[in-house]
Design a binder for these strands. Structure first.
Length: 421
RNA sequence: GUGGGCGUAGUGUAGUGGUUAACACGUCAGGUUGUGGCCCUGAAGAUCGUGGGUUCAAUCCCCACCGUCCACCCCA
């Protein structure tokens, strides 16, 4: 028997209210901040991600769905959204638009990973990108957007962590210092982290190993190695975030020098929103500034900042916090009909639908079975159309939700009566 | 990629080294002739994840693989 490929899932009708709710909320909040929707292809040139995400990252090294098409081009199912949006920015000359260019997307992403809670091979992200403005105002705007998104969804009990990774030229000496620092404790480091020390020293800072965390508490902090520009940027940002507390009484953030990033293109501001009782894969929003990226991709030097938010994880959290989500519009009418009235029933169904009344025909079974069907369908009304009604030119309307008595209405009044009720 | 838990009808579970694998929910039908919900009766639905092995005999024991869940890794 066929099954969904590993790490993928069908989103069945019963789940759709959550998806509708999240997508609509995302679109509304993006709109409120002046972000326009962008859709990019689901696959791109493989080299876009190699260059943009970083050749050395795990995503590119071992998680991409890459294939060669019949023309011999190497293509890759996008593992993240930022590279594509930046490619579009360059390709369509968006530097000629008023800056910054604000765009958002809701789209599936693909990574060959081992599935677990909050991690699948096809996941969906709501992402926003503001390209073309280096000022801290935009950093604050993006963070506010993320906060508002979560708040509007009805989520609470989440935290915002914030850090600066400095600019690339400032990071080099910092990384060297970090490496030296941890090397001094190499005897006390667990195996996993010893391996990481050479590969990605920053990663030691957010290690889950107790021993490493302890050592990491006194490790050199990127924030202490910011250059003048980066420092000014940081101070402006934290100032703006303090102001945000005036607008949003529940807004909080904490700077956390252990917050780092796996993707290469980030500089300066990085941030994450996560649930307070986060399990393994809890991060709901992760973002940051990526000033070097556009140039890396062959565009003019152009700053940018954005975030990605995993919809599957948001939905997990909506369920965990028991946030009620709007249910789809209800089915209004099930037409129950027998024998010679079935044709008239079809015509009546078309008539009701043309008035925007959701209508289904009960299956051609016994009368009793049709009534049962109507009851189980969850519809508001049964519309009964039998020989007697047909002769009288009426339909019998019976409420399935209450015990109000059944009424007969002329066929041409049925739509109006149902719409009113 | 590493480690651990788990794989029995659509769903949730029970069960046993040996004849027709059980229960609940769900589905379908019927309970007299045109009225649902409750109730009653019946039916359909499972190669007991797959492939090997042990055994006279395996759904049950062993191994491998696959899948799933969880943690690591990584990340949204």
């Amino acid at each position: 028997m066929f099954k969904t490929p590993r790490g993928t899932q069908d989103i069945l009708p019963a789940e759709q209210p959550y998806w509708d709710y999240v997508r609509k909320t995302a679109a509304r909040v993006a709109f409120e901040f002046g972000y326009g929707r962008i859709d990019t292809p689901m696959f791109e040139a493989t080299s876009l991600f190699q260059r943009g995400v970083g050749d050395e990252t795990d995503i590119v090294q071992k998680e991409m769905y890459s294939f060669e098409d019949n023309g011999g081009d190497s293509l890759t199912l996008r593992p993240e959204g930022t590279a594509s949006v930046c490619r579009a920015y360059i390709e369509h000359g968006m530097q000629n638009l008023p800056q910054p260019v604000r765009q958002y997307y809701v789209a599936p992403m693909f990574r060959y990973e081992r599935p677990q809670a909050g991690r699948v091979r096809q996941h969906h992200q709501f992402g926003v990108e503001a390209i073309g403005d280096a000022s801290a105002t935009v950093d604050a705007e993006i963070i506010e957007l993320g906060f508002r998104y979560l708040s509007q969804l009805g989520l609470s009990h989440f935290t915002l962590r914030l850090n600066s990774l400095a600019d690339p030229e400032e990071r080099k000496p910092y990384l060297a210092m970090l490496h030296d620092y941890f090397s001094r404790y190499s005897g006390d480091l667990p195996k996993v982290d010893l391996a990481r020390l050479e590969r990605a020293p920053l990663r030691l800072l957010d290690s889950k190993e107790e021993a490493t965390r302890k050592i990491g508490e006194d490790a050199p902090r990127a924030l202490d190695y910011l250059g003048d520009q980066s420092r000014l940027h940081w101070e402006e940002l934290t100032g703006l975030l303090e102001d945000l507390k005036e607008t949003y009484p529940s807004f909080e953030y904490q700077t956390d020098h252990r917050l780092v990033r796996g993707l290469d293109y980030y500089n300066r501001t990085v941030f994450e929103f996560e649930p307070q009782n986060a399990g393994g894969q809890g991060t709901m929003i992760a973002g940051g500034r990526y000033d070097p990226l556009i140039e890396i991709l062959g565009g003019p030097p152009t700053p940018g900042i954005g975030f990605g938010s995993g919809i599957e994880r948001i939905i997990l959290e909506l369920k965990a916090q028991e946030v009620p989500v709007p249910q789809p519009d209800e089915l209004k009418a099930v037409i129950v009909s027998v024998g010679p009235a079935r044709n008239a029933a079809s015509r009546l169904a078309a008539e009701l639908r043309s008035h925007g009344i959701a209508t289904v025909l009960a299956p051609a079974r016994s009368f009793k079975a049709q009534m049962r069907y109507a009851n189980q369908s969850g519809a508001v009304n049964a519309v009964i159309l039998g020989e007697r009604e047909l002769e009288a030119g009426v339909a019998a309307l019976k409420s399935l939700r209450s015990d109000t008595p059944q009424v007969e209405v002329p066929l041409d009044k049925a739509a109006a009566t149902l719409a009113a009720g």
